[in-house]
Design a protein around this nucleic acid. Structure first.
Lengths: 206, 206
DNA sequence: GTCTATAGGTTGATAGAC
DNA sequence: GTCTATCAACCTATAGAC
């Protein structure tokens, strides 16, 4: 996939497109989508407004491109998400941290899309098409726990997918809380949730 | 609470202010804050634009009023939230349903506020001031569980606040999912999470 | 308290040269 | 592919009458 530098194939990357995307994402996080204008995007990206309309057709096209790029990491996270190995504390903690890391950068985008019905519907259609959403994490963790239940390493009298939603929901809430510029009251740490889950899921000697 | 019609106390309700607030909330949910204009608010409310600026100083004032009104139910939910009675399935289920009911109507507002840095900060300041946020639910459920642990009705070897976050996070995620116009993949039902929690928290005969 | 009319300022988008 | 220049539309907010 990565070729030589001597003979460049295809069009030389002028970098304009990427600069626009990066500038849009930065302004989106900083000021919010309500104050995001093509004019400022052009200034920050160091290009003209017309260049934006050349690469993306209109403002909606620009935003949709940014959204899809910002959500892309979830596909990789879902692909790598084949949990394996015996049930351990570190496994859950690593998974939870990965989920929170993704959400910390994707949640501002998901909330921004809610500010415009058209954008919201288009992003929802894209997520439907790519089968993205919180259910992915729930299913991944749930099926893993189901296997561990069959192996006798996790107590078998609970719905593994319910437990999956508990962890995903924890990450979701913690990440959402971080988005608000208020932290006067802290939520329990991710490690506390993982510890509780490990304790609760340990097979009982019934 | 509902008085007679014969003798009206206080200023006669012209209804203009309330109509504006209701129209704003409706348009906010329908089109998103990005397409919310004072012009359309005036049309839907059946008043003139100037009337909006009379009651609220500017667009930001209108939005902030809508935000605070939409979040008000949380204060009541927090006040009534004094969980009591022995640990039962129905107790958790009722609490979870109340949380989801609140979030279903408050989450669109919270996400809308994220679209503008100024609005976001002002709402955050208000929530700080009123001490509102997901931690309220976590603390309420956590302290209740701690009491039940002391009473021997809940297994005592887990952090009760961690468990609190699990339930709140579940409701948060489920409600967020409902906001997206896509349901191709369902999350576990609230009852499933409650069942799992009840099973896991039952005291073991250790 | 509510209206009409309008000012003032931004914004998304296009045209056409290079 | 990128630029400058420009337009037409729109939106917030105010002024002043009733």
């Amino acid at each position: 996939m990565t070729g030589e530098v001597t003979k460049r194939r295809g069009r030389p990357p002028s970098g304009g497109r990427e600069a626009i995307l990066a500038a849009t994402l930065e302004l989106l996080r900083q000021r919010g989508i309500g104050r995001l204008t093509t004019r400022e995007v052009a200034v920050v990206a160091g290009v003209s407004e017309a260049s934006i309309y050349y690469h993306f057709n209109d403002r909606s096209g620009l935003l949709q491109a940014v959204f899809e790029e910002g959500i892309r990491p979830l596909q990789e996270l879902g692909a790598e998400g084949g949990l394996s190995g015996p049930f351990r504390r570190e496994l859950l903690l690593t998974l939870g941290e990965a989920i929170e890391r993704f959400l910390d950068q994707a949640l501002p985008i998901l909330t921004a899309a809610q500010s415009d019905a058209e954008l919201r519907d288009r992003l929802a259609a894209y997520m439907d098409e790519q089968d993205l959403g919180p259910h992915r994490g729930v299913l991944a963790l749930g099926s893993y726990l189901a296997d561990e239940q069959a192996a006798g390493r996790v107590r078998a009298d609970v719905d593994p997918y319910a437990v999956g939603l508990m962890l995903v929901g924890t990450c979701f809430t913690r990440s959402s809380q971080r988005q608000m510029p208020t932290h006067r009251s802290e939520l329990p740490a991710l490690a506390d949730i993982v510890d509780a889950l490990v304790t609760l899921l340990r097979p009982t000697g019934e």
